[in-house]
């Protein structure tokens, strides 16, 4: 019920938009009876603020978060980038090829053709390319000679004490003697028979046909240079096309690099002590 005591409350509620339908009807019925108060209601209604829609926040982009996968690239730009990348790849490949052609062979023999028996080849490889235990464990792709050496070492362990021909057996004294001895030429060990190995490996008959064999050797001092050149000339005389020869070169390069790295690792491990301590107390020392 709207009265002269509470009409103002009704007007304020109406200005706030909080008056229900019944209250509004009652208010306007009251104003019909008191038209002089209509002006007061209009004044209250005039206090209602109207938002200025021209006032906008101009930096909405700074508030927005990027949706994943929404970013797009224009096709034109993409082709420009692709063309630029193709040119770069082409130039780099071309330069690499030029460099490979300029640098002749490596210090390591690529291929070799021998008419001798395979046994001799094997013994030669063993003597000229010593591989230690650590080498074998590190070598991920053992080549033919190394595989053979593994087998041979296994046989040595089971057989009677063999003479110190193979440097694979780790003995400090033996290592020293091997280390101090100058490396023999590649042909020398071929002449030395290895009687202790003969019963284990059946001696095959000499094969008259030339047999292609990849011999991997570590980088040798300058004494072997003439031999390397000779072998390179042999490689050049092989009836291989350029692509194959190049592939062969790359393969031997890769193998040689790996051997070189393994050698470096072996030398770095040697003389290294690993000491396990708790507080100031030494538990044990592992010497390599």
């Amino acid at each position: 019920m709207v009265t002269l005591d509470n009409y103002e409350e009704y007007m304020l509620l109406e200005a706030d938009g909080e008056l229900d339908e019944a209250g509004r009807t009652a208010l306007y019925a009251f104003l019909e009876q008191h038209p002089g108060l209509r002006k007061e209601l209009d004044a209250y209604m005039s206090t209602r603020l109207v938002p200025d829609t021209n006032m906008v926040f101009e930096h909405k982009d700074s508030l927005l978060k990027d949706e994943p996968g929404k970013k797009t690239f224009s096709l034109g730009n993409w082709w420009i980038y692709a063309a630029a990348a193709a040119v770069v790849v082409f130039v780099v490949t071309f330069m690499n090829r030029e460099q490979q052609e300029e640098i002749p062979g490596t210090t390591i023999v690529k291929t070799e053709i021998k008419n001798t028996a395979p046994q001799n080849n094997i013994s030669n490889n063993i003597n000229t390319a010593p591989v230690t235990d650590s080498d074998k464990s590190l070598h991920s792709t053992p080549a033919g000679p190394i595989a053979y050496e593994n087998k041979k070492q296994h046989q040595q362990k089971t057989s009677i004490k063999a003479p110190a021909v193979n440097p694979v057996v780790k003995r400090p004294v033996q290592e020293e003697s091997v280390a101090h001895q100058p490396l023999p030429p590649a042909e020398a060990p071929r002449k030395q028979p290895m009687p202790e190995h003969k019963p284990m490996i059946p001696a095959p008959e000499p094969v008259p046909a030339p047999q292609e064999h990849i011999a991997v050797e570590p980088p040798e001092p300058a004494a072997q240079e003439p031999d390397l050149k000779e072998r390179r000339s042999l490689l050049a005389s092989l009836p291989l096309n350029e692509g194959r020869r190049e592939g062969l070169n790359e393969l031997t390069d890769a193998v040689n690099n790996k051997i070189e790295r393994i050698k470096n690792m072996t030398s770095s491990i040697k003389g290294t002590d690993v000491k396990v301590k708790i507080g100031n107390r030494d538990l044990f020392v592992v010497k390599f």
Binding site: P51, V56, F57, L64, K65, E67
Partner: peptide
């Protein structure tokens, strides 16, 4: 979600700015 947040930005940033102003 992110999409709803962005919708809020688009819908309420202006009103919030007027109010804050």
């Amino acid at each position: 979600e992110l999409k709803e947040y962005n919708a809020c930005v688009k819908e309420w940033a202006d009103a919030l700015f007027r109010f804050a102003c």
